[in-house]
């Protein structure tokens, strides 16, 4: 297995949280690329074809739900699993995220081991 480890696209507008997650994911052995808003996230998905996307939902320019729907309607990137990562922790927020086309859902504050498991699960499923 000499191939590059599969990359993760982290979409997060909050600088503090973005920096923290990048560090933790990299420490866990992942290759991480980032985007600050929904529009940039879609561009990054086209350019880098990440294995998994971690997407905050409250994003400037284009919010996470819209970006997610557009990704799912685009054949080139619709196969990429998107894990919603949001501080909206209500039951209906989860339903809303899944309805928008997200493959999975995790709330903030992040349960990191659980998030790693989810990421691994989706990478395995798509391998």
């Amino acid at each position: 297995m000499n191939a590059q480890p599969p990359s993760i696209l982290l979409v997060e507008d909050n600088e503090v949280n973005r920096a923290m997650l990048v560090r933790r994911l990299e420490r866990a052995g992942h290759r991480v690329i980032t985007a600050n808003d929904g529009e940039a996230a879609l561009d990054a998905m086209h350019t880098h074809r990440p294995a998994v996307v971690l997407m905050d939902m409250n994003l400037p320019i284009k919010d996470g739900w819209t970006a997610c729907k557009e990704a799912k309607n685009n054949e080139q990137i619709s196969h990429i699993p998107i894990i919603a990562l949001t501080a909206h922790a209500m039951e209906e927020d989860k339903a809303k995220a899944l309805a928008a086309g997200c493959s999975d859902y995790a709330t903030k504050p992040v349960d990191f081991p659980d998030l790693l498991e989810k990421i691994a699960g989706w990478i395995d499923a798509n391998a």
Binding site: N14, M20, L21, R23, R27, A87, A89, K108, P109, V110
Partner: peptide, 25 residues
Amino acid sequence: LANVSHELRTPLNAIIGYSEMLQDE
């Protein structure tokens, strides 16, 4: 309440995330 919950979680995410990370490091 939903908004409060959201707003409380955003700083908490940083607090818990950074603390866990520092502990790991």
